[in-house]
Simulated scan of single mutants.
Amino acid sequence: MRFRRLIALSFVALLAPLGAAACTVEGPGTKSECNVGGCTVTFTRGVDAKANILGIDAELVAVNGNTVTLKIGGQQVDVPVGETQAAEGMNVTVQEVTDEKVVVKIATGLNSGN
């Protein structure tokens, strides 16, 4: 876990001089948009949706009402919509849940602003 956090912090440190630098990555069932504050991941519901964010695997496991179950690294976490939980040294916030998608912000905790 310590190594993963070091990788994530290095990623943030490398992007910090670039200011508004951002990247977008799409994969099977996911779209990730990252900047120095972290990454926003849009998971498509009904598919095996996974993404690698800041060196940590993130997977949508289930949605039960307004609570989303995610697997972040090796840790499973339940996060209600609009709330934040810690997992694998990251802050995980569920921003939106619809019938088609789940939008999650994953941040290192260094800059928790949206």
Rank of each mutant, 00 (worst) to 15 (best):
I7W: 13
I7A: 15
A8L: 10
L9V: 09
S10H: 01
S10K: 08
S10N: 11
F11Q: 15
F11E: 14
V12I: 10
L15P: 01
A16Y: 07
A16G: 10
A16F: 05
L18G: 08
L18R: 13
A20C: 10
A21I: 05
A21D: 06
A21F: 00
A21N: 01
C23K: 15
T24G: 11
V25W: 00
E26R: 15
G27M: 04
P28A: 15
P28Q: 14
G29R: 07
T30R: 06
K31A: 11
K31L: 02
S32V: 04
S32A: 04
E33A: 15
C34S: 13
N35C: 03
V36I: 12
G37F: 05
G37A: 15
C39S: 03
C39L: 04
C39I: 01
T40S: 04
T40L: 04
T40M: 02
T40K: 13
V41H: 07
V41D: 04
F43L: 11
F43M: 08
T44F: 04
R45W: 01
G46Q: 01
V47Y: 01
V47F: 11
A49G: 08
K50C: 02
A51T: 10
A51C: 00
I53G: 05
L54C: 07
G55Q: 13
G55S: 12
G55H: 05
I56W: 08
I56Y: 08
D57Y: 03
A58Q: 02
E59T: 15
E59W: 05
E59H: 15
V61H: 12
V61A: 13
V61S: 08
A62D: 12
V63Y: 09
N64C: 02
N66S: 04
N66W: 09
T67P: 00
V68H: 02
V68M: 07
T69M: 02
T69E: 05
L70Y: 02
L70P: 01
L70F: 01
K71E: 09
K71A: 02
I72S: 11
I72D: 13
I72K: 12
G73L: 11
Q75W: 11
Q76W: 05
V77C: 05
V77Q: 00
D78H: 13
V79W: 05
V79R: 09
V79A: 10
P80M: 12
P80N: 12
P80V: 08
V81N: 00
G82C: 07
T84Y: 03
A87H: 07
E88R: 15
E88C: 14
G89K: 09
G89F: 11
N91C: 09
N91K: 14
N91S: 10
V92W: 02
T93Y: 04
V94K: 07
V94A: 06
V94H: 00
Q95M: 11
E96M: 09
V97A: 07
V97I: 14
V97P: 06
V97Q: 10
V97H: 01
D99G: 03
E100D: 14
E100V: 01
E100I: 04
K101N: 07
K101Q: 08
V102Y: 03
V102E: 03
V104K: 04
V104F: 06
V104T: 08
K105G: 07
K105I: 10
I106R: 14
I106N: 06
T108I: 01
T108S: 12
T108W: 03
G109M: 03
L110C: 02
N111P: 02
S112T: 11
S112A: 05
G113H: 06
G113T: 13
N114M: 08
N114C: 09
N114E: 02
